[in-house]
Simulated assay, not measured.
Amino acid sequence: MTISVTRTRRAAAVGATALALLLGPLALTGGATPLPAAAPSADLPAGMVDALERDLGVPRAEAGQRLAFQADAATKVRTLTQALGATYAGAWVDPAAGTVHVATTTPTKVRGPMATGVTTVTVERTLAQLESLGATLDAAGLPADVATWYVDVPTNKIVVEAVGDTAAAAALVAAAGLPAEAVTLAAAPAAPQTFIDVIGGRAYYINSRSRCSVGFSVQGGFVTAGHCGTTGASTTSPSGTFRGSSFPGNDYGWVQVASGNTPRGLVDNYSGGTVRVTGSQQAAVGAYVCRSGSTTGWRCGTVQSYNSTVRYSQGSVSGLIRTTVCAEPGDSGGSLVAGTQAQGVTSGGSGNCRSGGTTYFQPVNEILQAYGLRLILG
């Protein structure tokens, strides 16, 4: 069996490369249609425009247009997903070029109004087949030297990242019996770690020993990362109690706040303002996303993949969103948004906000469903 060994590379349609660098925990003890040249952005929070320009080089005049495009694209992708059914192999967008790509094993199904403005890519494997291959890796168990696997939709392959040498990833793939042509091995110089360090991105404290960040307000409290606290753990600023926590396997939890605290549907943009949360519709691969956290504030990047499994030192976590957003210890649990749509809470990753990094997020809709919670909208 021969498996290609490469650095993880994103397709040109996505146009973003993740940098895998070291992060550690922090405790209190320590077919393109060009976009118009100018687009209104006056209605966007200044902090969001600043961060998109700083982190992704998005011209300020085009920020509003690009975000509007990706919101429309998310609706189009949802329609394509339903229409293609079992033949669907994923979709991705490029907000800068204004393109929507959909992959399928049966391209003739992309027809009629839903084909307008869509580039169809014919592939060998459906998204369900790729995710099934990933589930096989989960069943085999990720060894300590394997950092993550994820579905790379633009290349129609599973990417398995190992820390440094890819030998451990190759051995896992071989032992799991995955076909060589469906796998890309990638070398990551450091292992992902949880960001043990809240009100949409603002700090909160767990058992007076560690700091994390609030994800999103829900009725009665807020959601955050599961690794931040176990069920029953107490919090301060705001005061509350973890009523549910799942980690590893998942990385989600929810905190019921004490009376006197008022959950609001807002996320701190760390520029003197807030971003209101209007829903939780999933963005497409390639979409711009921004994260709020109590260590590094407001940072932006792009979505690289969904349903990624990550091997932390504490164990594997599955079903995560992989992004190029940077993060650092203490940002854990914080909010990830696409425009004003809630996406997930910060789980962990590698790298930092000085040299770049890869960060993984627990999808917010899964948390809401797991605990029967209702997102509070701004």
Rank of each mutant, 00 (worst) to 15 (best):
I3D: 01
A12H: 07
A16D: 13
L21M: 12
L23I: 10
A27I: 08
A32T: 09
P45G: 11
A46P: 06
V49W: 09
D50N: 15
D50P: 08
E53L: 15
V58A: 05
G64H: 12
F69P: 06
A71Y: 04
T75P: 02
T81G: 02
A86C: 04
W92N: 05
P95I: 00
G98D: 00
K109H: 11
L137N: 02
D138G: 09
D138I: 05
A147C: 11
Y150E: 14
D152L: 12
V153D: 10
P154Q: 05
V159R: 00
A167V: 15
A170V: 08
A171V: 08
A174E: 12
A175K: 14
A175Q: 11
G177P: 08
P189G: 11
Y205Q: 15
I206M: 04
N207Q: 08
S210F: 01
V218I: 14
Q219A: 14
F222W: 07
F222N: 06
V223G: 02
A233T: 07
G253Q: 08
D268H: 08
Y270R: 05
R276P: 15
S280V: 00
Y288M: 04
Q304C: 08
Q304H: 11
N307Q: 14
S318L: 04
L320A: 02
S332H: 00
A342N: 07
G349H: 04
G349E: 02
C353D: 05
C353Q: 04
S355Q: 14
S355A: 13
G356E: 05
Q369K: 13
Y371D: 09
Y371V: 09
